[in-house]
């Protein structure tokens, strides 16, 4: 296991809300990637996090770009670096709205073309930057500003959509598990061709949790099986770290839901639906890991 470097590429401080775990995740992404890295950022909290022109808190170059264009821009950049013989890492760091909804076709195109890059979706399960509207990644029962009674639709399964592209490396990660995230970014960047990492990032204002709770809530997401840590290298799935134990024994889902104000009004029926989806996801992952599907 590589040692996590002390270098920081987010200078004190970003404009992120106190306790923002998207900033925590990005801290470790950049530690793993190092200085020879370019970030491509579509509109999201991370656009604002950088600070105010003519200054930026980010110590690596950032290309801020329109929602629908992030993965296409990264494709061009990656080709340009390659043609100059450069090994610069090209990383898209995009929100869930920018990934599962607005940027999905450019992403699909870049994966299909075999672009040598890493696409990271940091998932705070809503459109955070514009005031927490629901996104395709918002789970059932969660209150957002556009679903004040709780979302009635299912969270879009972006991981299985990405998996259908058969890319060399794909993983899930969590801001509450920085070492696992660091290792996965290292692996992704060492793998030629496209990689995708989906990071769960609990968000204090959006999830209606106190600013000291994102790491605790992120860990609880894993302990309840609501979020599963895994990676798939050239089609071989491995369930990682704490999620291995969860496959055998997990905490009740309500221990995750009850920590968060956004699930206050969730109905019994919706809790059952979440339970069912969660169980089905765990069963499918277990089968895949065992080579049964």
């Amino acid at each position: 296991m590589a040692e996590i470097p002390e270098d920081e590429y987010l200078l004190k401080c970003t404009t992120a809300c106190a306790g923002c775990s998207a900033a925590l995740a990005l801290r470790y992404v950049l530690k793993a990637a190092g200085p020879d890295t370019v970030l491509v950022v579509p509109a999201c909290c991370t656009s604002v996090l950088q600070g105010i022109y003519p200054n930026t808190a980010f110590a690596v170059p950032v290309y801020n770009i329109a929602f629908a264009a992030a993965a296409a821009c990264a494709s061009g950049m990656s080709e340009a670096f390659a043609s100059e013989g450069k090994k610069t890492n090209v990383i898209v760091f995009a929100g869930d709205g920018g990934t599962v909804d607005i940027g999905i076709q450019a992403l699909s195109g870049a994966l299909e073309r075999g672009t040598n890059f890493l696409y990271i979706c940091y998932d705070n399960e809503a459109y955070g930057n514009t005031g927490m509207q629901r996104s395709g990644a918002t789970p059932i029962g969660a209150r957002t500003t556009t679903t004040p009674g709780g979302k009635t639709d299912t969270k879009k399964d972006i991981d299985r959509i990405i998996a259908a592209h058969n890319i060399p490396y794909q993983a899930t990660a969590s801001a509450a598990h920085p070492k696992d995230l660091f290792e996965k970014v290292k692996t992704a960047l060492a793998t030629p061709g496209p990689s995708f990492i989906h990071i769960l990032v609990p968000c204090p204002p959006g999830w209606r949790i106190p600013s000291d709770m994102p790491v605790t809530v992120g860990k609880m997401a894993v302990k309840t099986g609501m979020w599963v840590l895994w990676e798939r290298k050239y089609g071989e799935l491995t369930i990682n770290g704490p999620s291995r134990a969860v496959m055998k024994k997990r905490l009740p889902l309500k221990e995750y839901l009850s920590l968060q104000g956004r699930f206050k009004g969730i109905t019994e029926k919706q809790v059952n639906e979440l339970e069912q989806q969660l169980g089905k996801n765990l069963a499918m992952l277990a089968k895949e890991e065992a080579g049964e599907c």
Binding site: E6, E8, C13, L24, R27, P204, D212, P214, V215
Partner: peptide, 23 residues
């Protein structure tokens, strides 16, 4: 776990920048 890297290797907290999140 400090999202803002405000705690150094000697566990000194940089109060000029620490946002007080409590993580």
């Amino acid at each position: 776990y400090c999202p803002d890297a405000c705690i150094d290797a000697d566990l000194e907290i940089d109060l000029e920048f620490c946002k007080g999140c409590g993580i």
